[in-house]
Amino acid sequence: MISIQDLHKSYVTGTNSLHVLKGLNLEIEEGEFVSIMGSSGSGKSTLLNILGVLDDYDKGNYYLSGKRIWGLNETQAAITRNAMIGFIFQSFNLISFKNAMENVALPLYYQKVSRKKRNVIAMEYLDRLGLKDWAHHLPSELSGGQKQRVAIARALISNPKIILADEPTGALDSQTSLEVMDILKEVNDQGITVIIVTHEHDIAALTRKIIRLKDGVIGEVITNGELQMYRDRVKQE
């Protein structure tokens, strides 16, 4: 699903050049449930941006679903994002003057789905996330957990191959965090690849694979058996 080889990315600000990703290699198979961890400055946000086709890279290869993402113009990038990727953000990023249903339906608007049809589909997704009764509420009238569920519905509505979640529980209390993680797990069970960027160990421990970034390269990949040990270790902490 995702194949990255020797990925380099630097940010140039004035005369300073900041080399963030330094030859990163990463393979994520279809249907994986992965968390990316790392201290600030390790390059995890940069990696997420590149994975989400929000940013380009300097050198290396990034294959998304077999297609190399390289040299896309803004329109192509927008179409790729719309078709392939669902985003979930820490601060939800719902549009404040649109109600829950309209927010969920927005990606379909950019696919030129008719208003009536996309609202029906949006209602289905809201129903699945238990928010049918809140469909006509504005984001300001929803709780944090509800907002994030709306955001998840919005990420799912375009049938993406990948869900990219940037600190999805960062703004939620631990109880709601667990609920959101349960939903993401359900999403993953339907075969959608879910990638979570987080710095919370207990959240990362709920995924099936942890990728630790360190200084712009993969520092450590924890899977299966190791993950169980990791979970225990987190519990002790």
Binding site: E74, N82, I95, P107
Partner: peptide
């Protein structure tokens, strides 16, 4: 800006 950013992340083309 933020709203436009969200729209773009969700697949809004520059034209739209």
């Amino acid at each position: 800006t933020k709203e436009i950013g969200i729209r773009k992340a969700l697949g809004a083309t520059p034209f739209s």
